[in-house]
Amino acid sequence: MLAIPVVIGVSIIVFSLVRLIPGDPARAMAGVNATPDFIEAIRVRHALDQPIPVQYARFVVRFLQGDLGNSIFSGRPVTTEIGERFPRTLILATIALVIATTLGVTAGIISATRRNSLFDNASMLVALVGVAAPVFWMALMLQLLFAVQLRMLPATGIGTIRHLVLPSITLGTASAALMARITRSSMLDVLRQDFITTARAKGLDERLVIYKHALKNALIPVVTVLGLQFGILLGGAVLTETVFAWPGVGRLLVDAILRRDYPVVQGTVMLLALLFVLINLVVDIIYAFLDPRIHYLSGRGE
């Protein structure tokens, strides 16, 4: 239950950090036309004229009641703003993760079992390029290729599954590349270990050795990274969401930072923080499930 002090810590940091940003929400909204009257009105309405500890206390009291306040920019409840955007990012990140895991793990396994083959070298090269390309650049290139040249997929927007394809591939590429490399090296590690040699020596079918015995153990580091990647995909969709006009929580957060929409920034970050705590928990559980020592003690691995 160390998560609670951590979440409190995150909230304090975010709360003070956003207020350190120069500029103010009224100016971000009304631009050059922000009158002193209007600036003052916004400050009073959102209690920005109060001392920061007072503001924080208000925030905490409301937060405990499930109220994240209202967006300064749109006037709508932050919970509504997030409620609309979050599922979209969740879908995008999930699909991206599925693509990344499928491609990455498959490529990693094949590469590891056929070390130094053409497939191994080619897929590792692709993986290396995949992590090395700036995301927005790749997004633009994919958009030009699939939407403009081939006319196969819509360039922007939401609505159908087809709209998901380009953004999720863009978002998932770097993760896929990372997964492939991790799976490969982890698989190679495991294949060198004693119990695999034993299994092989016992005359077990090579495919059984790989898929049943080696894979389960090789996946441990992959699962750790998986949890981590999910978090990164959720929040890191900022650039992808911008290029593909995908109205997710990443763009909401960055727009809110740029507009000094403090309640939205706080709310979104708190949500993400809670989510990451949750993901860490799930990872821990899966980790325990996959941990070879537990299996060998219970004898299920044989």
Partner: peptide, 27 residues
């Protein structure tokens, strides 16, 4: 223990987001 949990969350937070906040604070 505290540092560890905190760092867990910070790591889960995409670095680019953290960088965005820091740049807006600093210019």
């Amino acid at each position: 223990m505290f540092t560890q949990r905190f760092i867990d969350i910070m790591i889960a937070f995409p670095g680019i987001l953290l960088a965005i906040v820091v740049v807006t604070v600093l210019g």
